[in-house]
């Protein structure tokens, strides 16, 4: 049953892909602005590459969050979910997963291409990809809390960014330093394990917090 709910959630998100592709395009665009601003010297860009890619991924995620719940809230879908027999937080978790599959996963897939364009040393690739694979779901999960709390604010994107960006700091620090360490020949196990631990924490708590946030907005309307 949960699988079929996910199927429809994914299908709906997929059919609205034009909205969801925009953040991905934005990600690529931001990354390619840096060489234009800083100069195309490989020695200059290589140490900055992981930071640039991570900041761009963070911004792209923030851009996509507004779409996570708003439409369904306005259409009354969420109140039907809240009234359904499946626990609400599970449905919210499924929504977050579907959202990540279409906005977070493409960032992971595209990252090697951007890493190449920014002259990232080849030893860093694996830790960048693994880091993004562990880190972008955290961004979506924490972001979901913000999206849930701001679902009724008409121009909620600014508030959402202000609220969520500070919470992204640990992910950014661990994610962006892992490739730098790998480039120095050190295995960035600590960072990746920290990301994994934070993913477990976020996956446990964020759906609960997000469903609570949505419930507050449903009850108050």
């Amino acid at each position: 049953m949960i699988g079929r709910v996910f199927h429809y959630e994914f299908l709906q998100a997929y059919r609205r892909r034009s909205e969801l592709v925009t953040p991905v395009v934005f990600f690529v665009l931001v990354c390619s602005m840096f060489p234009l601003a800083l100069g195309s010297v490989a020695d200059l860009l290589a140490p900055l590459a992981s930071g640039v890619i991570w900041v761009a991924a963070l911004l792209a995620t923030l851009l996509s969050l507004d779409q996570m719940f708003r439409q369904d809230f306005d259409d009354g879908i969420l109140e039907q979910m809240e009234l359904s027999e499946v626990p609400f937080y599970q449905l919210v978790a499924i929504k977050i997963l579907a959202h990540w599959c279409l906005t977070g996963l493409p960032l992971v897939v595209l990252s090697p291409l951007l890493a190449m364009m920014l002259f990232m040393p080849s030893e860093s690739y694996l830790s960048l990809i693994v880091g993004l694979f562990l880190g972008t779901p955290i961004l979506s999960l924490i972001g979901a809390i913000g999206a849930a709390l701001t679902v009724k604010i008409r121009r909620g994107n600014v508030v959402l960014s202000l609220l969520i960006m500070p919470l992204y700091v640990p992910v950014l620090i661990f994610g962006a330093t892992a490739p730098v360490m790998a480039a120095q020949g050190i295995m960035p196990a600590a960072q990746l394990l920290w990301l994994a631990a934070m993913l477990v924490l976020a996956a446990t708590l964020a759906p609960l917090a997000a469903s609570l946030g949505l419930r507050i907005n449903i009850y108050g309307s």
Binding site: L149, K152, L212
Partner: peptide
């Protein structure tokens, strides 16, 4: 920045009860 986020969340929700509770959740998450 966290303080600013919480304040701006509180100020941009019109319904007072919703604003209070949303702010409370943001505080706990913070």
């Amino acid at each position: 920045f966290l303080y600013l986020g919480i304040i701006s969340l509180h100020q941009s929700i019109e319904n007072r009860d919703t604003a209070s509770k949303a702010t409370a959740i943001a505080c706990l998450v913070g």
